[in-house]
Design a protein around this nucleic acid. Structure first.
Lengths: 116, 116
DNA sequence: TCATTGGTTAAGGAATCACTTGACTATAAA
DNA sequence: TTTATAGTCAAGTGATTCCTTAACCAATGA
């Protein structure tokens, strides 16, 4: 089982904003300069930069400046970290349901318990 | 493709806190009264209640009060909504990589493009 | 009945967030 | 060389977040 550290905080926090999710969706299609990322967004460029900084701080995005244009690309591993945590919870849930079903067939009458 | 509405904001926001993720992990194992949820946590009961309210507000948790004890249970569908969004991004990424690979085999020399 | 247990409400405070404007730098184009 | 483009830095603001304490209510057990 993975450790996740405190990084999940920052990843989920980053994804909790619609603007940043839109940026992620755009970057999934390929690397993009900042100005291109900013174009569809109704906010100032510094605001866009701040969103990019949040995405970079949690490792979801990396960027590189060439000449005067900074190009951003996504880092899919971190996206996967978040997905893994969610998947882990879901499978725990499903396993519990299975055990519950087995137990009911086995020994009906005993109620569900948190420890199960 | 699902709509997700503005609900992803609140779900990811809810998951962006380690205390709330711990609560989710506990609830995955089965329904639990508030006091039991609070026990391992180093904070006041009102603080715990506020976390529960955040989890309920995004639909991740439901609770019911019987007598004087309020029992919380998880709502796995909402967890899945978040997982689905992440999975969608990952598969988009993987499809893009495939197309990129095909294209390179097909016609080497043409660089990658955001629109690909 | 009275104290205890389990939870709730309200108010407030420090920190963080998402955004702004204004001033600025560096590269590229005319 | 001048001008436009692409991005950056700093400071400030209103809203939200996470937590606290204090007071409170309602169910339960002695």
């Amino acid at each position: 089982m993975p450790n996740y550290g405190g990084s999940l905080d920052r990843v989920f926090q980053a994804l909790a904003d619609g603007t940043r999710r839109a940026m992620v969706q755009r970057l999934i299609r390929g690397p993009v300069p900042v100005s291109e990322l900013a174009r569809p967004l109704d906010m100032s460029l510094p605001a866009v930069m701040q969103h990019i900084q949040v995405l970079e701080a949690c490792g979801l995005v990396r960027s590189e400046k060439i000449g005067r244009v900074r190009t951003c690309r996504i880092e899919p591993d971190v996206l996967r970290t978040a997905e893994d945590w969610l998947a882990e919870q879901r499978t725990s849930w499903e396993r519990r349901l299975d055990r519950l079903g087995d137990h009911l067939l086995d020994d009906p009458g005993t109620p569900e318990q948190g420890s199960l």
